[in-house]
Simulated assay, not measured.
Amino acid sequence: MTSRYIAIDWGSTNLRAWCYQDGVCVDSRQTTAGVTRLNGKTPEAVFDEVTQGWREKTTPVLMAGMVGSNAGWKIAPYLPCPARFSDLSQQLTPVLDNVWIIPGLSIQSENNCNVMRGEETQLLGARTLSQSSVYIMPGTHCKWVHADKDRVQDFRTVMTGELHHILLNHSLIGAGLPEQQTSHKAFIAGVDRGINDSALLPRLFEVRAAHVLGELPRSEVSEYLSGLLIGNEVAAMTRQYMPDSQHPITIVANPALSQRYVNALGMLGYQAKVLDGDNAFQAGIRSIANAVAN
C-alpha cells in the first residue's frame, strides 16, 4: 500500500474513520450513519461523504465491522477458526477500486456456534500490542477469545451489554426509575452477588424487588445490575476458559468499561492488562495495511 490510507470501523449504529499519512493519523471523523441507520442513503453515498477530501482513486481504504454483514454494503465471508491472524490480510473482500472489507471470524462446532465482525481487527491489533492467551473484548456483545501468537483458536460471545440495556430500559426492572448515578459501591455489590451465585435468572427480579423495598437506592439500579451481570459473566467464563489464574489476560475496550472487568476479575484472583479499543483497532488496520503493501 501507499503511505496514505484510510481506516473505517463501520458498525450497526455508528461509523468512525481515520486518515493516515506515513503511519500517523492526520484526521478522523465520526457519524451515526451505521449500516442500520443510513436514512435512505446508499452505503456508497455515506462512504463518499465520510472520505470526502481524504481520498484519491489510488488511496487504499480498509473497512471492518457490520459493513461486511448481510445488512451491510457487501458480504465479507467469515473465516472459520482456528484461523491465522495473517489470513485477515489475505482474504479481503473488494468493494470498489482500492476499497476492501476485512473478513469476520466464525466458530461452528458441536458445542459452540459463534461469529464476530469488527472485533477481529481489534484482536489483530491487540495481539501486536499485548500478546496474551485470553482476550476479553467487552461491549454490547462481549467476546472471550483464546489465541496464540499465530492463530485465533476459539471464542465465545456473552450478551452482557445488550442484556443490561434491555433490562434497564425495556423491562420491569427499570420501570419508573429516576436518572441513574455512578456508584462504585453498588457496582461492586452487584459483582459480589454475581460471582457468588450462578442462579442469575432468579436474581434479576430481586433487583426490582430490592429498589421497591428500599434495599437498593433507585438511582443506583443501573450500577448494581451492571455488576450483577458482569460478575456472573466473569465467573462463568473463567470457570470454562481459565481453570487457574496464570493465563495472561488482556482486556480490549474503552478505559471505563475495561475497569469494570478488571474489578470483577480481581475479585476472583485474576489480573489483566488493559488496551484501549480504538488503539487496538487502528493497530490492527495498520498491520493489515502493511501486510498488503508487502
Rank of each mutant, 00 (worst) to 15 (best):
M1D: 07
T2C: 10
S3E: 09
Y5I: 07
I6P: 11
G11L: 08
S12A: 07
L15I: 09
Q21D: 11
D22V: 05
G23M: 04
V24R: 12
V24Q: 14
C25W: 00
C25F: 00
T32A: 10
A33C: 11
L38I: 06
T42W: 06
V46P: 09
V50R: 05
R55W: 01
L62N: 11
G65H: 02
G65N: 06
S69G: 12
N70W: 07
N70I: 15
A71F: 15
G72P: 11
I75C: 07
A76G: 13
Y78P: 13
Y78H: 12
R84N: 14
S86P: 00
S89E: 05
P103K: 07
P103V: 03
Q108N: 15
S109M: 03
S109G: 00
C113I: 15
M116Q: 05
E119V: 05
E119N: 02
G125N: 03
A126R: 05
R127A: 13
R127S: 13
R127Y: 08
L129E: 03
L129S: 03
L129H: 01
S132D: 00
S132L: 08
S132K: 06
Y135N: 03
Y135S: 06
I136D: 04
P138S: 08
G139D: 05
G139I: 07
H141T: 08
C142E: 06
K143Y: 01
K143C: 13
H146Y: 14
R151F: 12
R151T: 14
R151Q: 15
R151M: 14
D154V: 15
V158N: 15
T160Q: 04
I166M: 09
L168H: 02
H170G: 04
I173T: 08
G174W: 01
A175L: 10
Q181S: 12
H184T: 13
A186Q: 01
A186I: 02
F187W: 07
F187I: 10
G190A: 00
V191Q: 07
D192V: 15
A199R: 12
L200Q: 03
P202Q: 03
R208I: 02
A210C: 04
H211K: 03
L213I: 11
G214Q: 06
G214H: 09
R218N: 07
S226I: 09
L229E: 05
L229F: 04
I230K: 01
A236R: 15
R239S: 14
Q240C: 13
Y241T: 14
M242W: 01
P243E: 14
H247G: 14
P248S: 10
V252S: 09
N254G: 12
P255E: 12
A256R: 14
R260N: 07
Y270P: 00
L275R: 03
L275A: 06
L275D: 02
L275K: 02
Q282M: 13
G284E: 00
I285A: 12
A289C: 14
A291V: 12
